[in-house]
Computed example of a mutant assay.
Amino acid sequence: MSDPIMLAGLTEWEWVFCGSAALLAGCVRGFAGFGLSAVAMACLVLILPPVELIPIFYVLEGAASFAMFRGGIRDADMSHVWPLAIGSFIGVPIGLMATTTVSPDISKLIAVLVILILTMLQFFRSMPAALTSKSGRYVIGTTAGIVTGLASVGGMVVALYVLASRAPATQMRAALTMFLFVGMFTSLGHMLLYGVMTETAFIRGAILIPITLAGVFLGTWAFKPAWQVHYRRFCLLLLVAICLTSLGRLAFVG
């Protein structure tokens, strides 16, 4: 085993689990435009606390955003993306403060419950009409930032907003891609300030990048505009299944 992998401090079986989760999460990201961190968090929270996973997902989301940037900048409406990104910049430190102060067991439970609640909200498209207004975008962005700091799943909040706007699937994927791309630059400073982005976290993320990108390219290849009526439901059902499995596992272990 090479030195970088040894330095990352995971067993061989944990790496197999991490790699499998990264591949699955990458497929969902390429297919739906969001859900990488949600899928990976729901899986990997069984072996690592959220405070260690959040910077790993930052690295993976960054790699995925660069891979999907061309399509995102072509199809996204940036007048929607910028207010969301500004709000996220405000919200991230609030979420990180909570994540770094609660116990690992509580943070794991919070992370999975947040993902499950957001997933169910997306099933029912539960978004107050006022929040889809121009000023409401800042509120959504701030909420996304808080959730990013808690569980690295701010993209799901923004996905809920875009779904409420009834945008076509292609535009939704593009808006989410650009939100997550801009978020790379707005979140890094906060992570460094709170000491969340460590050398170990960066190495873990870097090791998983090739596997994640393989999943992203596979998911992007599988996405067909004609399938847009089916793709959203598939991704949400997958998230629900993973969350319920993780909650059961956490309860059993606890």
Rank of each mutant, 00 (worst) to 15 (best):
L96H: 04
L96V: 13
L96Y: 13
M97H: 14
M97P: 00
M97G: 13
M97A: 14
M97S: 14
M97Q: 12
A98V: 15
A98S: 11
A98F: 15
A98D: 06
A98P: 03
A98G: 14
A98Q: 09
A98W: 14
T99V: 08
T99A: 12
T99R: 05
T99E: 01
T100R: 08
T100Y: 03
T100W: 05
T100Q: 07
T100M: 14
T100H: 06
T101W: 08
T101A: 10
T101K: 10
T101I: 07
V102M: 14
V102E: 03
V102N: 00
V102D: 02
V102T: 12
S103W: 04
S103D: 15
S103N: 09
P104A: 02
P104T: 04
P104M: 04
P104I: 02
P104Y: 05
P104R: 03
D105V: 10
D105F: 06
D105G: 09
D105C: 00
D105Y: 07
D105M: 13
I106S: 11
I106W: 14
I106R: 13
I106C: 03
S107A: 15
S107P: 02
S107V: 03
S107M: 14
S107N: 02
K108W: 06
K108V: 02
K108P: 02
K108F: 03
L109P: 00
L109E: 11
L109T: 15
L109S: 12
L109C: 01
L109H: 08
I110T: 13
I110D: 01
A111V: 08
A111P: 06
A111I: 08
A111Q: 04
A111T: 15
A111M: 01
V112S: 03
V112W: 03
V112M: 01
V112G: 02
V112A: 02
V112F: 02
L113A: 08
L113H: 06
L113V: 13
L113Y: 15
V114W: 03
V114E: 10
V114A: 10
V114N: 05
V114L: 13
V114G: 03
V114D: 08
I115A: 07
I115D: 04
I115W: 08
I115E: 09
L116K: 06
L116A: 12
L116R: 07
L116E: 06
L116Q: 02
I117P: 00
I117R: 00
I117H: 00
L118I: 05
L118E: 07
L118A: 06
T119D: 12
M120K: 01
M120L: 15
M120D: 00
M120P: 00
L121P: 13
L121H: 11
L121N: 07
L121T: 06
Q122H: 02
Q122Y: 03
Q122N: 15
Q122L: 12
Q122V: 04
Q122I: 11
F123K: 01
F123C: 04
F123G: 00
F123I: 01
F124W: 15
F124N: 12
F124V: 11
F124Q: 10
F124P: 05
R125D: 07
R125I: 09
S126M: 12
S126H: 05
S126D: 01
S126K: 09
S126R: 12
S126E: 03
S126C: 11
M127Q: 07
M127H: 11
M127T: 15
M127R: 11
M127F: 13
M127A: 12
M127W: 09
